[in-house]
Design a protein around this nucleic acid. Structure first.
Lengths: 219, 219
DNA sequence: GCAAAAGTGTTTTCAATACACCCATGG
DNA sequence: CCATGGGTGTATTGAAAACACTTTTGC
């Protein structure tokens, strides 16, 4: 059969929390088309390598990040999405915590790879803006179902900080009291006994997520 | 780059309602491996054909069905999932109504293509059981969010009938009064003025789904 | 003592659940 | 008139939403 062979890439939309905002990792595209635009890390799938392996090596090689939470996303397959040749892209929504990001931060040049707040993105190439939007939707579902939270919030976060993250991801403000209640009465978090330091105003209690991470069912 | 070219197939998990049960369309596999097992319709993606086009021509050519409701599903990419060669499979959940199915029914031989209740499947080949299970999960979400209902229930259905379908899809019984309420107070259905005939017991009122099919948001 | 940000409780509203009796038809 | 399955209403519960004042710290 002619024409049945395709290029397929695993795409990584990697989210983390920086300054109480959801940020996405982008790299600068070095080649035409869309040279100089920012794009999502991705890696071609070879015919004897699984998708899981491909996405985790993509994370390590291109972003210097360990494998954490990965959820399969949508497929992007328009014939002209990569202009020059037809590449089918399979998106993955990945979550890494800010502590891990900070450790790796020094090693990378911000000219090549950088984090951008999802509400303040740079020029993004190809169809990657669509992919990021689809990923944000999935992130919202994850946050509301409290799946993968521990990958985004390592121990010692404050609730106001977490709330700001939720607000940045959902795109609208939340009530402080109701926000606390969601986590308290579901017994999801526990106090570490410490408080924030060096901030203006009253210090916030610090929390960690409890271990019991049962998959919550929606229905 | 060597080894970057892949076979990719669009897979169609097609659901319909028959005898108040959710059924899935399967075809008999004619070639080894898994010869004689039942498999999901699928079609190789050619490098200049979009995924949407591929799946709709797959529906038409292999099942003789018009394009109706299609929702992208998961990707199945294990290196050995098709045993002989590596084929990446992109699933699609499709809904067709029973009237359309009946019209096309005569033209196909049940030796080659047939509908099976999802709780009573025949021997299914390759990884297709995983794919069907993943599709059933997505179908459940669609039913609960009332998305695509009109593709599954054409005009003149009774509520008890619809309830049996929900119960077969969800795998547990539902309360009759509460079931009605869900549809009534959301203003989703309207009476056609007709009733079922030729059944034992009191005849059931027949309904149709109202046109206003706004995407319900979950959050 | 004042500015800044965090912590806390109560009321209301709405959706989901549980539950039992009457009604229309065919034989 | 009886068997079969369909139609209907109410009370309860629990989650989400709305809402304002007090507390802790740094300066």
């Amino acid at each position: 059969m002619k024409g049945e062979l395709n290029y397929v890439e695993a795409i990584a939309t990697i989210f983390t929390v920086m300054n109480s905002e959801i940020c996405v990792l982008l790299q600068k595209n070095k080649k035409e088309p869309y040279k100089g635009y920012w794009i999502l890390p991705s890696k071609m799938i070879k015919k004897d390598i699984s998708l899981e392996e491909t996405i985790s090596s993509c994370l390590e090689e291109q972003a210097g990040l360990p494998v954490t939470f990965i959820k399969e996303g949508n497929t992007f397959s328009a014939v002209d999405r990569k202009v020059e040749k037809r590449v089918i892209g399979i998106n993955h929504v990945c979550l890494v915590d800010s502590k891990t990001v900070e450790l790796k931060q020094r090693e990378i040049s911000k000219e090549e790879l950088d984090w951008f707040p999802i509400r303040n993105l740079p020029k993004v190439g190809f169809d990657n803006l669509d992919i990021i939007e689809s990923s944000i939707q999935q992130l919202q579902t994850l946050l509301m179902n409290k799946i993968g939270l521990k990958y985004l919030f390592p121990s010692d976060f404050s609730l106001p900080e977490m709330q700001r993250v939720y607000e940045s991801a959902l795109g609208h403000p939340l009530d402080r009291r109701n926000f606390r209640k969601r986590f308290m009465q579901n017994d999801l978090i526990e106090e570490t006994g410490y408080k924030t330091e060096g901030t203006t105003g009253r210090p916030a209690k610090l929390y960690r997520l409890k271990e019991i991470e049962e998959e919550p069912k929606i229905f």
